Computed example of a mutant assay.
Amino acid sequence: MIKNEPNPQYMAATDRYETMSYPRCGKSGIRLPSLSLGLWQNFGAVDSIQNAQAMLHRAFDLGINHFDLANNYGPPFGSAESTFGQVIAKSLKPYRDELLISSKAGYDMWAGPYGIGGSRKYLVSSCDQSLKRTGLDYFDVFYSHCYDPETPIEETMQALDYIVRSGRALYVGISNYSPIHTKQAIRILKDLGTPLLISQNRYSMFERGIEDGLTEVFAEEGLGSIVFSPLAQGFLTNKYLQGIPEGSRASRSEQIYLNADQISQEKIAKVIELNKLAEQRSQSLAQMAVAWVLSNEAVTSAIIGASKVSQIEDCVAALNCADFSEQELQKINNILAQ
C-alpha cells in the first residue's frame, strides 16, 4: 500500500559533516564515522518502514554515513536488507557515493548445507542475494560474519578476495574472529592482494573480550576495528532499572542475546552505580557507555542500534562529552569489578 512506502521527499542536512568525527580505519584510506548505524533489529518486515526511514534519514543528517547490515538481519531473515533497499531507492540513492554500506554472511541463512558457514559457495551466493535485496551494485565492505572451524580459513579468505575482484565489494572484513584466526586472515588476504580492512566484534562495559588479545592485533597490524552492542543490547541504559519494560529487547521473544534471565540484580546494581557517574558527567548512561567504548584507542567506530530517532540523537550527543579522566575510568572499572 502507498501509505507503507518511504517518502521520497528527502534532502540531506547541509551541515551533516560538521559535528561527526571520522577516524581513519587502520592504515587504509577509509575514514569511518565514530558512530555507525546497525540494522540488526527494528528494520525488519515486522517493523514500520516509515520509522526505519526516519531513523536512516536522521542518522545521515547527523553525519552517520555508515550503515551496517547482514544477510540474516530482520526478522525475518533478509528483510532488513530489503527495507534498506526500499529507502535507498526512494530517497538515499542520490547520496550513494557518500555512504559506506556493509553486509555479511556466515551464520544460518537458508536450508541445506550451503546456507551457513564460510565456504566459497555460501559467501558468494549470499553476497549476490544481499545485493539483490538492497538493490546495490556493490557493497563497500563485505564480511565473513564468523569463523567457520569446518571450512579451511584459506577458502573463506579466497572467497572474500574473489568478492572484491569480481566487483561485488570494495573492501573485506571479518567479524567475531579470535586473535589467532584474525592474524591468519590478515596474512592470507595480504598474500592474495586484498588487504583486510576491518574487524567487527562485540564490545561494551559488560563484554570486554576484545581486550584479551584482539586490540593488540589491531594495533600491531594497523587493522580497523568496529564494535557492536556498546549498550549491551540496551542494558547500559536506564530502561531496565525498574524491571523489563514492555517492548524492550529483553521482552521480545525473538531476542537472542539479552533476555530476562541475564538481567540479574547484581548487574542492575552495577548499572545503578554507573548511572550515578553518568549523571555526574551530565550524560545519560547510554551516552557514557558509548563514549567509554570510543575511548579505547583501538576502536575506530561503534555501531549503535535504535528503535526510534531520539535514541540515535542521544547516542550522537555522547560525542559532546567523550573524554574521561583517569579517576573516572578507574571508578568504572571498580564498579564493574564489584
Results as ranks from 00 to 15, higher is better:
Ile256Asn: 12
Leu32Asp: 02
Pro152Ala: 09
Asp128Gly: 06
Pro75Asn: 11
Ser178Tyr: 01
Glu155Lys: 02
Lys308Ala: 07
Ala159Phe: 03
Pro195Met: 09
Ile2Thr: 15
Leu131Arg: 07
Ile335Trp: 05
Ile186Leu: 05
Leu223His: 02
Arg281His: 09
Gly135Asp: 05
Pro195Gln: 10
Arg208Met: 08
Ser253Val: 14
Glu18Gln: 15
Val87Ile: 14
Asp47Ala: 10
Gly222Tyr: 05
Asp261Trp: 12
Ala185Leu: 02
Glu273Ala: 12
Ser229Ala: 13
Gln200His: 10
Leu35Val: 10
Ala45Val: 10
Leu131Gln: 01
Thr83Asn: 03
Gln200Pro: 01
Ser82Trp: 00
Asp61Tyr: 11
Ile30Gly: 04
Ile116Lys: 13
Ala89Met: 09
Asn176Thr: 06
Ala80Gly: 08
Ile174Tyr: 00
Ala260Arg: 14
Ala59Lys: 01
Ser253Tyr: 15
Gly167Arg: 10
Gly74Thr: 04
Thr194Gln: 04
Phe67Arg: 01
Gly173Glu: 02
Cys25Lys: 00
Phe84Leu: 05
Gln262Leu: 15
Ile335Lys: 05
Phe60Tyr: 13
Ala302Val: 05
Ser79Lys: 00
Leu196Gly: 06
Ser307Gly: 12
Arg96Cys: 10
Asp191Asn: 14
Asn238Leu: 09
Arg120Gly: 06
Asn7Arg: 09
Ser178Cys: 07
Ala286Glu: 04
Asp161Ala: 12
Ile272Ser: 14
Gly106Thr: 01
Asn259Lys: 14
Ser21Pro: 12
Leu56Ala: 05
